[in-house]
Amino acid sequence: MSRWLTWRHPWSRVGDLLCVLVLGACVLAAVWPGVFTSLHPLGVHPAQAFLPPQWGHLFGTDESGRDVFTRVIYGTRTSLRIGAVATAIGMSLAVVLGFVSAFAGKVSDFLASRLVEVLFAFPGLVLALLFVALAGPGVWPATIAVGLATAPGYARIIRGQALIAARSGYARQSVLLGQRPAARLWHHLLPNTLWPVLSLVTLGIGQAIVWAAALSYLGVGAVPPAPEWGAMLNAGRTYMDTAWWMTFFPGAAVVVVAAAATALGRSLQQRSRK
C-alpha cells in the first residue's frame, strides 16, 4: 500500500493504544463517573465561583462554583449519548436511503434522492429548530433533531460509495458468478460501502455534539444545569474573557473524543484493507 502506511506503521500501535485508552476512559466516565471525582456535578458553591484551575479544581470552577472537571466527567455520558444516538439515527436513515438510491432501481433512486434533497434543502439547524419547537427543548429532542439534520449528508456519501463498490471488480465478478443479490449486498456491498465511511461516523459523533451545542447557543438545547459539553461550552462563552477555563476544557473534551474516535476508526479501516 502507500508510503504513508509503511511510515505510519511503527507508531500505529502506540497511537491505537492511546485512542483505546482515551475512549475506554470516556466509557468508564460515562458509566461510572464516581471513579474520577468525588465531587458532585451540581454542587453549587457561590463563594467559590470563577476559581482558576488549581489543585482540588483541576479545570477550575464555573459561575456557580461548580467544579468544571467534575462536570466534564459527568457530562461524558450525556454528550457521548447525544453524539452516538444522533449519529446512529443519521446513519441508519442514510444507509437505507443510500442503498435504496444506489440499488433499488432508477425510480427508487430518483425518489430517495429527492427525499434526501428535501432534507438537505432544509438547513439542518432550521429542521432542528422546528423539531424542538414541536417537541420542546431538551436533550432528546435535540438529539433526534441533530440525527435528522445529519442524515442527508451521510446518505449522499453512502450512495456514492455504494456505487463505487458496485462497480468494483469484485462486484462484477460476483454478478458473473451468479451470486444472489442479498448475498452480494451482505458480503460485499455493505462492508465495502461502510468501511470507507467509518471515519465519517466517528467524526460525526463530534459533529453531533457540536450541533447540539449550537442548539444550546440558540436557547433550545440541553436543559440546565445538566452537565453537557455543548451547554457548558455555551455557558462559558459568556465569561470567555475572564474565565477561559469554562470553555476551554469542555471544548477540549469534544475535540479529544472526536479525534480519538476518528483516529481509531481510520486505523481499523486501514487494517481491514491489508
Binding site: 467524526l203 463530534g206 459533529q207 455534539i209 457540536v210 451545542a213 449550537a214 447557543y217 455543548g230 461550552l233 455555551n234 462563552r237 470553555t247 471544548g251 469534544v254 475535540v255 472526536a258 479525534a259 476518528t262
Partner: peptide, 11 residues
C-alpha cells in the same frame, strides 16, 4: 481537520 470540524461556530 478534526479540531476544525469539532469547533462550534459560536465559540
Amino acid at each position: 481537520e478534526i479540531a476544525a470540524s469539532a469547533m462550534p461556530h459560536f465559540w
